[in-house]
Design a protein around this nucleic acid. Structure first.
Lengths: 345, 345
DNA sequence: CTGTTAGCGCGTTCAT
DNA sequence: ATGAACGCGCTAACAG
């Protein structure tokens, strides 16, 4: 045995004894109440803290001061690799950065929808507030939100355009509807008259908003252009290509294909390539939520850049301000998207 | 005011009083010591827990039982968007999933290298152990690891091929060296004789290992094939292309270009496209760490798939087992990579 | 099966 | 400028 297995971690008392002061003085040094401690004492205490490797026990402190220094990020998703989604990942990164900067910690918890009610966050009280990214069908998502609201803690939900008046609640999302309009305007300016939109069967509100924006754009243009929306069984490569194949078997080539997101648009584009259909000459293609990796594909997809990272940052700021002031400044934040023209339109 | 601003959160005593039992009985119900509580009492207590919306205060419990139910994930990176890196994100996802399944929480903290010493994790004791993903130069990374080791808590570091005998330490990484060999073997089988490897100027050990594996493969083949390694100022598109341009200005076309990772390989490939050089006919190209998004680019890059998610899972398992048994089962885990042939070789 | 006592490590209050 | 006593919410150990 190279080490005693259970050396007790130094406490504030140990430091006090070693520095020959009272525990209170150590506490004052730790919390920088320098008015109450002479510089000489401070130095002595700090030396002992260093020497003993003392670290404050967050549990005891938080218990005493009755506050939490962590924010929970709950991700409800059917996929076991919940966090692996690039969008979610960006959001979490932005959130964690802002919180860490304010000496808050981010506690990540992923789970399936049916696990929420039995999860630790429901049984324990250990964070100051929650942020949530929830996937699934409308009913499931709303049920999850209701459960979280009932926790009676500050709650921020991403990409969910709902209002819960009176609740300690805030929603943060990107302007998907505006993004849809930008796509519509861009294509209309190129005289596209026949639009095909491809959406995944699981309809996220964000995707509904994108289609809504597209419709608005067409309507504002006089309504001459037509829009068909088809559903792919999933976002997978094969399902998207199958949906495109089925559509094209029964219909003429559309002027433009609008994918609900980049993977869908890319799958559609590759299908066209494989069938000798030229992009953008014969069909224009647009995606949504441009991700880093897609910048590297050729031809470069026209898409709408998502402010996913900024969404997370905004959530962090909103949560910190909520904790400070007692209430959310605004019930909803909508961040602008950025249209990113590529070579496919 | 729609709500009293400071309604106190229910405690175990409140539940006890409401259910007309002692606090201890409530605690027994919460901790499922059912041997000590009659079914009728249990029901009564559970009803009151539900009614009062009681949730156990994790701080108080953890203080009392002197244990932490969270693992810290520290990410040291110069980029402010530290977590936004896809590889890191995958690792975190795997880790979080395993931990959550064992009723552990994952606490994420990102920071710059120079912030580590002043960070909360150094001042506070609030997790049962650490996992770390550290970037930067050798000296900086090793300094960071030393600081973490001095915390005297279980520590897992990713992608760092070092051993710290005697320390409560474990390293988990993918077989980058083996991946390099697979690439070499694959290209040698295609009669490539002149290899160009492109690495970023900041040399990660993982990338060194990839080059090392490549060298080993060439050596095992008799050493007739030549390998040149050039450095790009960064992994950015522009820097990589500039490095390729400079090399090609002074040298003949190599038989194959091996990028230290997929973005580098892709940037090189696009440079060749733009200059009318045919891939794979004139030059073959290989990347490393294939991620989902790259599957969508055409032509599909030959690459080596990274088990990033599995790395995180392995870390979770190793940490849980360490917490259980008192020591890491093994000082090092090396996970295999998977060669993924595409259309560029 | 249920209740009582004591104390985890820390910070506040009040005394010195 | 420093120290002593108390209690945050919870549970281990024991008594009933």
């Amino acid at each position: 045995m190279s080490k005693e297995p259970t050396r007790r971690r130094a406490t504030i008392k140990d430091v006090a004894k070693a520095a020959d002061v009272s525990a209170m003085t150590v506490s004052n040094v730790l919390n920088e109440r320098l008015q109450f401690v002479s510089p000489a004492t401070k130095k002595r205490v700090e030396r002992e803290i260093e020497r003993l490797g003392y670290r404050r026990q967050a549990n005891a402190r938080n218990l005493r001061v009755a506050e939490q220094r962590s924010i929970g990020m709950v991700i409800v998703d059917e996929s076991p690799a919940f966090l692996a989604d690039f969008f979610t990942c960006q959001v979490v990164a932005g959130l964690a950065n802002v919180l860490n900067g304010a000496d808050f910690t981010l506690t990540v918890q992923g789970m399936h929808g049916d696990q929420l009610s039995s999860s630790m966050i429901m049984r324990n009280f250990e964070v100051a507030g929650f942020c949530a990214m929830i996937s699934g069908h409308d009913a499931d998502r709303h049920a999850a939100i209701r459960q979280l609201v009932n926790l009676d803690q500050p709650l921020i939900v991403f990409q969910e355009p709902i209002a819960l008046p009176g609740a300690d609640f805030c929603t943060i999302r990107q302007d998907d509807c505006g993004g849809g309009r930008l796509i519509g305007d861009h294509l209309l300016a190129r005289r596209v008259e026949d639009f095909l939109a491809i959406v995944p069967s699981q309809d996220w509100p964000a995707i509904e908003m994108r289609v809504k924006g597209l419709r608005e754009s067409l309507a504002a243009n006089g309504g001459a252009a037509r829009l068909t929306v088809i559903t792919a069984a999933s976002e997978s490569f094969a399902d998207v290509q199958e949906a495109v194949a089925r559509y094209l078997a029964a219909n003429p080539l559309p002027g433009a294909i609008v994918g609900a997101n980049d993977p869908i648009a890319t799958a559609a584009m590759l299908y066209l390539f494989d069938h000798g259909i030229r992009v953008p000459d014969e069909v224009r293609i647009v995606g949504f939520n441009g991700f880093e990796a897609h910048r590297y594909a050729r031809p470069r997809l026209t898409t709408v850049d998502s402010p996913a990272y900024a969404l997370g940052e905004q959530a962090g700021k909103a949560m910190l301000s909520r904790l400070e002031s007692g209430r959310f400044e605004r019930p909803e934040f909508v961040l602008p998207v950025h249209f990113d023209p590529g070579a496919t339109t």
